[in-house]
Design a protein around this nucleic acid. Structure first.
Lengths: 168, 168
DNA sequence: AGCAGGTGTTTTACTGGTAAAGGATATCCC
DNA sequence: GGGATATCCTTTACCAGTAAAACACCTGCT
């Protein structure tokens, strides 16, 4: 039974501050560490498509909602600031993966739409990305994965209720 | 039983690409989302101390190992690039929380040490941060938390074995 | 000794995010 | 109608990270 890095860190803290309740680290520390590792690794099939994770998320949001989205909606959908969406859109429009149309009822708004090329890209990359992720998770048994997914769902409901409100 | 945002995204994908195995998202998507929410929220007790999460991690690494560390060791310990450590150290030394001594055997190396003030800061902030995190996790029962911690540990062992190697 | 090559740290150039200010347009209400 | 106000998006200024080059120093070989 090898230990993960977070367990080692917890042991160090216990040696320095015996009796302190370090249990939150065992969840939050591990989540942060997992996210970091995944973020660094996850790029494999995306790199082939020349997409950053951020661009992938944006294209994915357009594809899965199945309709045009405004920059503001994209920001909310991908949990990022509007300014970041503006930057991403510039690159993606330059590459011809999305196009913008200004609303003629309300000319402040833009509608962002996948081009044919953009739709092809996301429809190719998504399955490849999922296959890659399946490989990363293959070390866990199927039942383990289901349990973990369920518990992360519960945690996420808590966090979104508790911390997500002021994100409008 | 309300749904978390990742469940909603999965449903959207199922509507667009029925039959695609989206199960990796239910783990990886949730981990990324949790990490993002925590990262945005976690700052509460740190902000009071005027510390960023990154600075907190660095001070924590020094405190929990109980000895001086070189910049390179700090980089490995906190999982960031050496360049990032250099920047963080500049700020922390300016604020008098750490001090540097060059090794007199090998004058390339520096040894970074917590000052008295630095040790006080981390010893004050760590319990506050843990208390804050306990509050964030309070919505889950104690048994739920233990299960989740255990399963994240298993996942992390997988990921570190699978993705962590090329991190030396 | 002296040079080739390796290691530890910092610097440089760049990327991609944010917050806050700014510009354009719509809406409300007198 | 027309000014106050709100909304949507973009721009600006900045911050923190990275990769790769640069720098400084050590070590081993001849």
């Amino acid at each position: 039974m090898t230990d993960d890095t977070v367990a080692a860190v917890v042991l160090q803290w216990q040696a320095v501050h015996p009796g302190v309740d370090t249990s939150p680290m065992e969840i939050i520390g591990r989540i942060n560490r997992c996210a970091l590792l995944l973020q660094q690794a996850e790029s494999a099939p995306l790199r082939d498509a020349g997409l950053s994770r951020a661009e992938f998320d944006l294209l994915g949001a357009l594809r899965r909602t199945g309709r045009d989205l405004t920059p503001g909606e994209l920001a909310r959908e991908t949990f990022v600031s509007g300014a970041a969406v503006t930057k991403r859109l510039r690159q993606l429009t330059e590459r011809g993966l999305v196009e913008r149309h200004t609303d003629d009822r309300d000319r402040r708004m833009a509608h962002v739409r996948l081009t044919e090329a953009g739709r092809e890209v996301i429809d190719t990359v998504l399955p490849a990305q999922l296959a890659f992720e399946r490989g990363v998770l293959a070390g866990l048994g199927a039942d383990r994965r289901d349990e973990l997914a369920g518990q992360l769902g519960e945690l996420l409901i808590q966090l979104e209720g508790r911390l997500g409100m002021h994100r409008r």
